[in-house]
């Protein structure tokens, strides 16, 4: 893989420049090994399109989503106010993120605490790049069968259903919907801070149920747009039948077709 071109916000300021967008990497995208690949794929696309973007780097901190959904409103607001202070000090207007949880929190919950930004999920932003003629791709994935899992915090939480689907279709692949999709999509099991704890006692695991539903469409690829969903579904595939399908983020699908 080529070396990635990544500039921090502080470097922009040092040179007296301004980026067009701020890429909010998120804690998962920064630290989780699997999610790091999604981050790299997205940056590969940004580099290819010569997007003038910045990251916060060491100055980024947890969005507070997990703390808030776990009931720790104190910790959430501490995180939010710290992040808002940094974002506002750089006069950030536009944020793109590969994490629907950061997306939801920054877009909807920061505004009441003094943080007003135009926030986009990376699939929304990539759609825009295509519409502006800045991004096009080859048909490397042609003939592949893809099913798409709606992340709750992108779909039901914010009504973003179409950009991910439209991107998938533009790759020349077959999009096979699961029975429960869009509004009726079934959670992967990670939301509400479940990612960080064992599930309560039950008869089945949520991610296994959802992964089985995805595998029942006989896909080559299970696509999603959330690092947490990715983890849950990857585990699910390993559990049900290893290597029966790849679990990839839409950014990764596109990066394969550049």
């Amino acid at each position: 893989m080529d070396l990635l071109k990544v500039k921090k916000m502080s470097e922009f300021v040092e040179n007296g420049e301004k980026p067009d967008i701020l890429f909010w990497v998120g804690s998962a995208g920064s630290f989780d090994e699997r999610a790091q690949k999604i981050t790299r794929a997205f940056v590969t696309i940004l580099n290819k399109c010569n997007v003038n973007f910045a990251v916060l780097g060491e100055e980024e901190s947890s969005s507070g989503d997990a703390a808030k959904r776990a009931g720790n409103e104190f910790l959430f607001q501490m995180q939010a106010l710290m992040n808002i202070e940094i974002l506002n000090s750089y006069d950030v207007r536009r944020i793109v993120t590969t994490c629907p949880h950061s997306y939801n929190t920054i877009k909807n919950e920061y505004k009441g605490l003094g943080g007003n930004y135009f926030v986009q999920h990376h699939t929304e932003y990539l759609e825009e790049l295509i519409d502006n003629g800045e991004l096009s791709f080859n048909n490397n994935l042609k003939g592949q069968k893809v099913t798409y899992h709606d992340p709750c915090y992108l779909g039901r939480a914010n009504d973003v259903y179409d950009p991910p689907r439209s991107l998938i279709k533009k790759l020349g692949v077959t999009l096979q919907e699961m029975p429960r999709n869009k509004r009726n999509s079934f959670c992967c099991g990670a939301g509400g801070a479940q990612m960080f704890k064992e599930a309560e006692k039950g008869t089945n695991e949520i991610n296994i149920v959802r992964t089985q539903e995805a595998l029942d469409t006989k896909p080559d690829i299970i696509a999603t747009g959330c690092p947490f969903c990715n983890t849950m579904l990857t585990d699910g595939v390993k559990n049900i039948s290893e290597n029966s399908a790849k679990v990839l983020d839409i950014a990764e699908l596109i990066a394969e077709c550049l």
């Binding site: 990544v6 804690s27 920064s30």
Partner: peptide
């Protein structure tokens, strides 16, 4: 998870200084 967020600014035990390791 809470103490990780409080201390490192991430839900996992990683240092903020490593936020750009993915590059």
């Amino acid at each position: 998870m809470f103490s990780n967020v409080e201390n490192n600014g991430a839900p996992w035990k990683f240092s903020a200084a490593d936020r750009l390791n993915w590059t």
